[in-house]
């Protein structure tokens, strides 16, 4: 592995922290956050000076479903309460084309959303063309992120980022949705992407292999200027990059985030107290998910289905990895479990 000698390259460079605690965290609690929970955390994050607070169902606008989980609150309710709680922080939302539509974007715009992120699987950037074009016409700041990015080469990611900029994205980046990366993987990808675009580059980490903070620092050192992180790492499986760890580490190696340390630690305490039964941990199943390169959000449904069908959830994860399941393909879990159990429920067994 190449040395990630951050101290040599980092100067007084600003990093924008993007906080999807109230969106990605939903994956950890079956999309069940209520209005008071959203309000409490949004107020605390706003007070700490977190620049962007993203809210929504775990898969974004319009994604409440049996496939991924039905949200307790509607998009309207989530947007209303979070908008109301934010004074300085920008309100962000996330949408996957195919899950949400332009109607959902219009609704978010009616709620005065400041920043919209459009996500696609890492090789499918063209799915975002129409929605990014719509946001550009509406004059809404629009970023684009490539999910499950470990499934594409650095060169491919760079190409897709360049296309997303052509479609109208004013920030582009990658999600390590399976928590599969090691720092050198991130360095290589972010470097390629920064060479291909002249807009801010985003990195969104997951902690399945305990690498989320190190990967985020590697991303910053390679030129990323927007980093995603969640309070207490609140997120699917092993969780996301832990916000209140990342920020002081960034400051220590010479980046500026503009976030107040005590305010941040207070917000993280609020998150632990109000949002989650327990902070995410790198448990056995999350390690397997990271190794297999399968979306961390599959953890809950994999455990549910495996228990029901009497199969080893680790086998399910490795088989999903072999089938190259992308985020959103939760319906494959049942088939994989049935196949592992050796059951023929179909009509051509």
């Amino acid at each position: 592995m190449t040395e990630v000698t951050s101290r040599n390259v980092a100067g007084d460079k600003p990093i924008q922290i993007h906080d999807p605690t109230l969106r990605d965290g939903h994956h950890a609690v079956r999309h069940s956050l209520g209005a008071e929970q959203l309000r409490a955390y949004a107020l605390a994050a706003d007070a700490a000076g977190v620049p962007v607070v993203e809210v929504g169902h775990g898969n974004g606008l319009g994604a409440s479903s049996l496939q991924v989980g039905r949200a307790r609150l509607s998009d309207d309710e989530m947007l209303t309460v979070t908008r109301d709680a934010l004074t300085n922080s920008k309100l962000g939302v996330f949408m996957l084309p195919g899950w949400g539509t332009i109607e959902d974007l219009k609704n978010a715009i009616a709620h005065d959303v400041d920043l919209v992120r459009i996500g696609t699987h890492c090789t499918e950037s063209s799915l975002a063309e129409r929605h990014l074009g719509f946001l550009r016409e509406q004059g809404v700041e629009a970023h684009a992120v490539l999910l499950m990015s470990h499934m594409a080469t650095p060169g491919k990611l760079a190409e897709h980022c360049a296309r997303l900029v052509e479609f109208g994205a004013t920030g582009v980046g990658i999600m390590d949705s399976a928590g599969h990366y090691l720092p050198a993987d991130v360095t290589e990808r972010i470097t390629a992407m920064c060479g291909a675009v002249d807009v801010p580059v985003i990195f969104h980490g997951h902690n399945n292999l305990g690498m989320a903070v190190a990967n985020s620092i590697a991303a910053a050192d390679a030129g990323a200027s927007i980093l995603d992180a969640c309070a207490r790492g609140f997120g699917a499986g092993a969780g996301n990059t832990q916000l209140e760890v990342l920020v002081p580490v960034l400051e220590r190696v010479g980046y500026r985030t503009g976030i107040d340390l005590y305010g941040l630690l207070d917000a993280a305490d609020v998150a632990e107290r109000d949002l989650m039964p327990a902070p995410p941990t790198v448990d056995s199943i999350s390690i397997v998910s990271g190794l297999a390169g399968v979306f961390s959000g599959f953890k809950t449904p994999v455990l549910d289905v495996s228990a029901r069908e009497g199969v080893d959830p680790r086998d399910v994860f490795f088989e999903l990895g072999r089938r190259q399941a992308v985020a959103g393909q939760e319906d494959l879990i049942v088939d994989v479990a049935l196949a592992l159990r050796g059951a023929g429920t179909g009509d051509r067994s």
Binding site: G98, W99, H121, E124, M151, R323, Q324, V326, G328, Q329
Partner: peptide
């Protein structure tokens, strides 16, 4: 509710 996923897996899904 209708949802559409696009899979790039090889061999194709």
């Amino acid at each position: 509710k209708a949802i559409l996923n696009i899979s790039p897996s090889r061999p194709p899904a």
